[in-house]
């Protein structure tokens, strides 16, 4: 996956409150320490109230735009099933999709007006050859704290990049409150090792 001369475009999506932003902070910091130029962009404010959230992370030798152009994302790193499908037109045809196997119901679904769309994994697989579905909640549970879900999921993401494992651990430890470090490192390592699909 790792190329040195082209900018890598990571589109991270999910639902406000899922920890998308923290995960994107960790990735950016890791990539900077790995020697890349890095830019990332997301929207705060309204988006925090349970709305759809996206964070653009770009790294490489020299990054100009903080935003990924539609059709140009190399990786879709999605914390929620429905949100991944919402952003498919941002992806290159050979993009890698890493998606957390979790459903968060949008308001019109909880209200009983709409239903949560069916067959979402199939819809992604019909269009993209590399779709990896991760049960991050399960991994976090195994690590001992469901709130380590985003870091567990980050573990699954980290496998695809030639970055030293210790660098990830170092950054995760520096960005979390000390109390939570151990369980998160454990979750990260489980996510990194696990090949569930």
């Amino acid at each position: 996956m790792e190329t040195t001369d082209r900018v890598q475009n990571i589109l991270m999506v999910g639902v406000g409150g899922q920890g998308v932003i923290l995960a994107s902070e960790i990735i950016s910091e890791v990539m900077m320490r790995a020697g890349h130029d890095v830019k990332k962009s997301e929207v705060h404010g309204m988006a925090q109230r349970g709305g759809s959230v996206s964070s653009h992370v770009r790294f490489g030798p020299k990054v100009y735009s903080p935003l990924i152009k539609k059709g140009d994302a190399d990786v879709l790193f999605s914390f929620e099933l429905l949100e991944s499908v919402r952003y498919l037109d941002f992806l290159r045809s050979d993009a890698l999709i890493i998606v957390n196997n979790q459903k968060v119901l949008p308001p019109s679904v909880t209200l009983g007006v709409d239903s949560y769309p069916a067959r979402l994994p199939e819809i992604m697989r019909e269009r993209f050859s590399r779709v990896e579905i991760v049960d991050a909640l399960d991994i976090a549970k195994q690590a001992g704290n469901v709130r380590a879900l985003n870091v567990a999921f980050l573990g699954a993401f980290s496998r695809h990049f030639a970055v030293d494992e210790n660098l990830w651990k170092e950054v995760i430890s520096s960005m979390l409150t000390p109390k939570l470090v151990d369980v998160n490192i454990k979750a990260f390592m489980l996510g990194r090792e696990k090949m569930n699909s």
Binding site: A47, S52, V85, L88, P106, E126
Partner: peptide, 15 residues
């Protein structure tokens, strides 16, 4: 657009 049309995706506004 890639492949067949996507199903209707319920919007997710902030609440």
């Amino acid at each position: 657009k890639k492949g067949a049309a996507l199903p209707y995706l319920p919007p997710r506004p902030p609440t």
